[in-house]
C-alpha cells in the first residue's frame, strides 16, 4: 500500500469530497498508475481517502492510500505530472498494510490566520453556527484537543473523523472573540493525527514507522 500526502489549496478547496473521489480516479488513470480494482459487478479503483475536508478550507496535509504495485518515488512523480492545480503531492509513504485513514485519524491541526492567543477551555467552548438556515449552539470544548502557537499564529487541534469538529464552525466565535473577520477560505489544515494507545501521533511520523 502506498500513501500520498497531498495538498488541497487554491481553487481545489472548492471541490467537494465526492467530486474529489472522481477527480483522483481520473488523475490515477491519466498518470497510468496501475491501481488495483475491486472485484464485482462494477469494479472501482482501490483508493482510500482521509476524512473529508470542509468545503472552502485548504489543506497541506491530506492523505490518500493507493493499492498499486509500483515504486513509491515513481508514484509520486507520476501523480504530480497528472494532477490538477491545487492538488499536488508532497510526500509518499510505503506501508505494509492499509493504514485505515478514515478510521484511525482522530485529530487535525488547523491554522487560523490571527495572532496566537491562549484560549481557556477549562469552562468549555460554546459555538454558534448556521446549518440549513438554522442557528445552532453547541458545546465543543471536548473536541478541541490543543491550542497551539505556530509561528505566532493561532493553531487549533480539532477532533476529526467519527467525532468531528469542522474548523469553519468556530469562525463566528473566534471572530467575535478577537475582532477578526476570518472566513473558511482563510483556514489551513496543516497536520493530521493517528491515535495509538491513547496518544496522538502525527500522521507523517506514524506512516513512516508503520510496520
Amino acid at each position: 500500500m502506498l500513501v500520498l500526502k497531498y495538498e488541497k489549496t487554491a481553487r481545489a478547496c472548492f471541490i467537494s469530497h465526492i467530486d474529489l473521489l472522481k477527480h483522483t480516479e481520473r488523475t490515477i488513470r491519466r498518470a497510468e498508475i496501475p491501481v488495483k480494482f475491486s472485484n464485482g459487478y462494477s469494479p472501482h479503483a482501490l483508493l482510500f481517502f482521509s476524512a473529508p475536508l470542509a468545503l472552502g478550507v485548504s489543506s497541506k496535509a491530506e492523505y490518500l492510500a493507493i493499492d498499486a504495485d509500483m515504486s513509491a518515488s515513481e508514484l509520486l512523480a507520476r501523480y504530480n505530472t497528472s494532477c490538477a492545480e491545487g492538488l499536488k503531492a508532497s510526500k509518499v509513504f510505503e506501508c505494509s498494510k492499509n493504514p485505515n485513514l478514515q478510521g484511525k485519524v482522530v485529530a487535525s491541526d488547523y491554522i487560523f490566520p490571527i495572532k496566537y492567543h491562549d484560549i481557556d477551555l477549562s469552562n468549555g467552548f460554546e459555538i454558534e453556527y448556521v446549518r440549513k438556515g438554522e442557528t445552532k449552539k453547541e458545546e465543543v470544548g471536548s473536541k478541541i484537543f490543543a491550542v497551539k502557537n505556530v509561528d505566532g499564529k493561532l493553531c487549533l487541534c480539532l477532533a476529526t473523523g467519527n467525532t468531528n469538529l469542522r474548523p469553519d464552525r468556530l469562525l463566528g466565535m473566534l471572530n467575535a472573540m478577537f475582532g477578526a473577520n476570518m472566513k473558511a477560505t482563510d483556514i489551513v489544515k496543516v497536520a493530521q493525527y493517528f491515535k495509538v494507545d491513547d496518544r496522538l501521533i502525527e500522521a507523517d511520523e506514524y506512516l513512516d514507522n508503520l510496520e
Binding site: 481553487r11 472548492f14 467537494s16 467530486d19 468545503l55 472552502g56 477560505t185
Partner: peptide
C-alpha cells in the same frame, strides 16, 4: 469572490482550473 463562493451551492461551478 471567495466569500461569496462560501455562500452558494456547488462553488466548484465558478472556479475554473479544470485539468
Amino acid at each position: 469572490l471567495n466569500s461569496i463562493l462560501l455562500n452558494v451551492e456547488k462553488p466548484a461551478r465558478y472556479v475554473g482550473g479544470e485539468w
